[in-house]
């Protein structure tokens, strides 16, 4: 599965989700993000530009990450949200928690 993590600065990590975040790679996503949190990351920018599938297990792993960083005053934000991801976010009403940005750059500017 093609998860790609990139450190933007000490506190902020950009995760390129790739084609899918679902039951197949959700635990991988969880483990990799956890590692980043242990190393001091607080903010996560999730790049959904190519994402066609986000199932409930995948979404659950994002929620876990949110639960993990919010006590540390961290944020999880969504960038370049694709249509299928938007549908899931609308349905679960989670846009109230995950701020959305048109691009990774826009998210970086706000979090900086």
């Amino acid at each position: 599965m093609s998860l790609e993590l990139k450190t933007h600065n000490e506190e902020t990590v950009i995760v390129r989700i790739g084609k899918a975040l679902d039951f197949r790679n959700a635990s991988d996503f969880k483990a990799q993000c956890q590692e980043q949190v242990q190393e001091g990351a607080r903010n996560f920018i999730l790049d959904f530009s190519d994402t066609g599938i986000l199932d409930s297990t995948g979404l659950g792993s994002i929620f876990s990450l949110y639960r993990q960083v919010s006590p540390l005053n961290g944020q999880v934000v969504f960038a370049s949200v694709s249509r299928p991801v938007q549908v899931v976010v609308q349905l679960t009403r989670t846009y109230k928690v995950f701020r959305q940005f048109p691009s990774v750059e826009a998210a970086q500017d706000t979090l900086a």
Partner: peptide, 27 residues
């Protein structure tokens, strides 16, 4: 709480029951 929105089926066709709020366990 963030669940698939129910539908009311009448003579006028299906009507989406729109109100919904955030999924449980997050905040």
């Amino acid at each position: 709480a963030g669940h698939c929105r129910p539908v009311l089926v009448t003579d006028n066709g299906p009507e989406l029951i729109t109100y919904s709020d955030m999924i449980l366990g997050l905040k």
